[in-house]
Design a protein around this nucleic acid. Structure first.
Lengths: 113, 113
DNA sequence: GTGGTATATGTCGCATAAGCATATATGGAT
DNA sequence: ATCCATATATGCTTATGCGACATATACCAC
């Protein structure tokens, strides 16, 4: 977060979406993407390359932690959990998004994002 | 706009901001940037490199048209006007932003952009 | 048993957007 | 004289997201 509102914010609301999706409980990649697609009514869909790339990035930054889960009747999955650092980042990004979205909506003349 | 919501949207609300800024009347680059910074309370600030690059891009796509304006006590400026195509694009991008912002806000658990 | 679909993870390579640094030019303030 | 605000311009770098492809398991229909 810098003075001009973090550049990451402008590009990637993607991080925010993923972090927020992991807030309630651990989920695996595919599930996160599916949930976001569903909840957005299909408006936001992640490409797999973006999705997994993002997850690795978030994990390498220590915001989420992934563990392999083996189950009898399923391909193995990697369940991601939000870390304490991730929780803090989520709060920051949420606040940042709020300011940013309000500003864009205002300037663009769109009533209430 | 494709099915997954245009990728440009996720990256660039920048185009929308500029097009919207030119809706009322022609403005020159520096003025557009300043206006956006002011109206957003400093939250959104364009880097000059981004700004002019963006203006050239928008002009090459036929959405805005620039004309040099010579004035007595000032450096010459390039005034940009929104074209008919630009007006149509603005409407599309406004609608797209609205859907996108609502979706992100909802998933992120942020009450109303 | 073959084919199709949904689930699930992964990678390479590319296009491009946005920012950083830097340069040029003019006028006003200190 | 020097600094700041105005105003436009460009080469370079970084990172983001996507298309295309690859792999693997489970289930269902035929």
């Amino acid at each position: 977060m810098d003075a001009t509102l973090d550049r990451e914010l402008k590009k990637g609301s993607a991080e925010l979406l993923i972090l927020a999706s992991l807030e309630g409980r651990p989920r695996h990649g595919y599930e996160v993407a599916k949930r976001i697609a569903d909840e957005s009514g299909g408006a936001i869909r992640f490409n797999v390359a973006s999705l997994y790339g993002l997850l690795y990035r978030l994990e390498s930054r220590g915001w989420i932690r992934g563990r392999w889960v083996e189950a009898p009747n399923a391909r193995r999955r990697r369940a991601y959990t939000l870390t304490a650092a991730g929780r803090a980042t989520l709060a920051e990004q949420r606040a940042g998004w709020k300011v940013f979205a309000a500003a864009v909506s205002r300037i663009a003349g769109v009533e209430h994002g």
